[in-house]
Design a protein around this nucleic acid. Sequence first.
RNA 1: GGCCCCAUCGUAUAGCGGCCUAGUACGCUGCCCUCUCACGGCGGUAACACCGGUUCGAAUCCGGUUGGGGUCACCA
Length: 496
Amino acid sequence: MSASFTTATGADVRVRFCPSPTGTPHVGLIRTALFNWAYARHTGGKLIFRIEDTDAARDSEESYAQIIDALRWLRLDWDEGVEVGGPNGPYRQSQRSDVYAGIIEQLKDRGLLYESYVTGEEMEARNVANGRDPKQGYDNFERELTAEQRAAFKAEGRQPALRLRVPDRDLSFDDLVRGPITFPQGSFSDFVVVRPNGIPLYTFVNPVDDALMGITHVLRGEDILSSTPRQIALYEALVEIGVATFIPRFGHLPYVMGEGNKKLSKRDPESNLFHHRANGFIPEGLVNYLALLGWSLTNDRDVFSLDEMVAAFDVVDVNPNPARFDHKKAESINGDHIRLLEADDFATRLVPYLTDYIADPPTPEQQEVLTAAAPLVQERMQLLGEAPGMLGFLFTSDDELQYDDDALKTLGETSGDVLRASLAALGGLGDWTRESIEAALRVALIDGLGLKPRVAFGPLRVAVSGRRVSPPLFESMEILGRESSIARLEKLAARS
RNA sequence: GGCCCCAUCGUAUAGCGGCCUAGUACGCUGCCCUCUCACGGCGGUAACACCGGUUCGAAUCCGGUUGGGGUCACCA
């Protein structure tokens, strides 16, 4: 590649995110969006959001809506593109056919694109006839077809595909995350950019749109690394006809892998961004974890905000090795972010996960309980999806409260005595507060019955929550109220 | 198979020639705190794939080997 093309830097940075709307958003895709976004924000540049919907058979509006949903949920905004518009629209490739048609004509007139009539079967036969591997691929043999030959094919009713004449030399570029990469001449042959029906392929529209939109840095998945020299060849052609004035820099981000050594597949639920949202990831936590897949803030801290990421992010610091998605680590990071939330904010975010128990929005009574109980569980949660298990008992009537089997198993010989002694101690209690409840129970059970705390309070926990583990007992009883607490102790005492 | 990429504890990473008897986090684990579970605190476990070079000195640079991954479509 010529060294004479200039590339923009600093505030002139223009990066893009250009997914195909097929299927539900993948964590790898979103990680790519995040890095592009962070780079734009860090440099004061622009993020362009374009949709590559040139495959009518696989693209869907539902998928498009999901990608928008995902970006907005994670608070990744864009400066130009679908939904927001901009000077380089339209931003959906399905609406840009006219743009492509003009460029195809110019390229063809210059001889940079040429007609190719050979079919796949014919090419295989040709390779066999020439003693080559049948799968060897195209050998550029139609570069110099004469007008007569072309006319003959057309007379047969054949329509040509258009191939790009690739330069007969090595193609190199300096990858932002991997350094210099060279593809030797002959690594690939002239490739099809326009189908016989006139519809251009991804290999064409992607670089063309990048050029037209002034993209300076192409940050994308590693899977496209090997087609980068092809794109550079196209770019050189675009420069020749004046459509592009420079070749962008490329940076290939590492894969996001699943268990073992396989790329996180679309079938794998871990790959589905919304699966994580449904489980109770908060955007702060998920985006933080995604950032850690190939990048780090400092050597001794991995919990940080988007703002902190923006201040520090640079593509050149991205690690080239593939990263495994570790849900344990992801959940731990999420738990840290949950703990960072303001109490009211946290309580509000719990609501959608508690719809089996409360209304959305909650009734005033439910809101009161939720506000009181949220701080008790904020430091014990990694995922908001744990809320029903931890708090459900507070929104269940005394009659309907169920006991978990493993909770009942912890009940022993003394459980009945503990419950009866507790009822006696609590019966005449004046104030119903965490402190008064605890004081009365300690006197009755620890001092009175001589029990160890964990033995004494276990049965009460089961009676109140129906579970073996629960939020702190005395606080739970205070929130539940005197009447309900006593009813629950009596209910369990009756069966002990 | 051709071409390309990658290679530090189980995982994610720090390290960009001496600060490294390799740091941090998750995980696992011991102890403390403690009404359960968590949170928090203090410990422990565990890695430079291999072989050659370059250098006074290499996890760091170079070459090779091995291993992994990707890509070779008229899909994107």
